[in-house]
Amino acid sequence: MLRLGIDIDGTVTAQDTFVPYLNESFQCAITLDDMTEYDLTKLLKISNEEFWGWMDQHEPLIYKQAKPAEGAKVILDQMKHHHKLIYITARRQHHTDVTYTWFQENHVHYDDIELVGGHHKLEAVQKHKIDVFFEDHHGNATMIAKEADIPVILFNSPYNQMPIDDRIIRVNNWQEASQWIKQYEQRLQTAY
């Protein structure tokens, strides 16, 4: 049984979740393809303070209404029988209730959820003894792969196209992620 560490936003939820809210608030017409950096302030031509003011106002509704990524629920339902599913998210602590409610309303299994309140997930990864991590943020994936020395499955997106090292596995969807996990388990069993 592997202990799987799983990011939520852009990994379990659809990567374009924020797009309609951004377009409405900032009177623009961006798409996921326009989001070539994780930091959206340049794309929106706003300051960091303006962005976080907007996030403070809109995050609860966005998190509440987020759609699961295509295939995520089916694959996670299969994985829950063989692995521990531990969600480690950059969401801030005051979003705990909306986060748990989303998992319950969408019938997505979890063994644990930790809101770390920022992009430094390494401590939580180590605390939970994570074997493989699922992420969409390039910086997080790189740090976790290097510092925790574990494989990181990186969900392909326009905003994470920087080079990756050999501990990072780029996938396009949850089916590819599941296939990689099955092959990884087989390699581990063969090694013992």
Rank of each mutant, 00 (worst) to 15 (best):
Leu2Trp: 03
Leu4Ala: 02
Gly5Leu: 00
Tyr21Ile: 11
Leu22Thr: 03
Ser25Pro: 02
Ile30Leu: 10
Glu37Ile: 07
Lys45Met: 08
Ile46Val: 15
His58Ala: 13
Glu59Asp: 10
Pro60Asp: 05
Ile62Phe: 03
Lys67Arg: 15
Ala72Asp: 13
Ala72Tyr: 14
Ile75Ser: 08
Asp77Asn: 15
Lys80Pro: 02
His83Met: 05
Lys84Gln: 12
Ile86Pro: 08
Tyr87Met: 04
Tyr87Pro: 00
Thr89Arg: 02
Thr89His: 03
Ala90Trp: 00
Arg92Asp: 05
His94Gln: 08
His95Val: 00
Thr96Lys: 07
Thr99Arg: 02
Thr99Ser: 05
Thr99Gly: 00
Trp102Asp: 02
Gln104Trp: 05
Asn106Gly: 04
His107Arg: 15
His109Leu: 10
Tyr110Arg: 11
Asp112Pro: 01
Gly118Glu: 01
Leu122His: 09
Leu122Arg: 06
Glu123Leu: 04
Ala124Thr: 01
Ile130Asn: 01
Phe134Thr: 00
Glu135Pro: 09
His137Ala: 09
Ala141His: 07
Ala145Leu: 10
Ala145Ser: 15
Ala145Ile: 13
Ala148Met: 13
Ile150Met: 06
Pro151Tyr: 10
Leu154Gln: 09
Pro163Cys: 12
Ile164Pro: 09
Asp165Tyr: 14
Asp166Ala: 11
Ile168Lys: 03
Asn172Glu: 12
Asn172Thr: 05
Ala177Gly: 15
Ser178Tyr: 11
Gln183Ile: 00
Arg187Gln: 12
Thr190Ser: 07
Tyr192Pro: 03
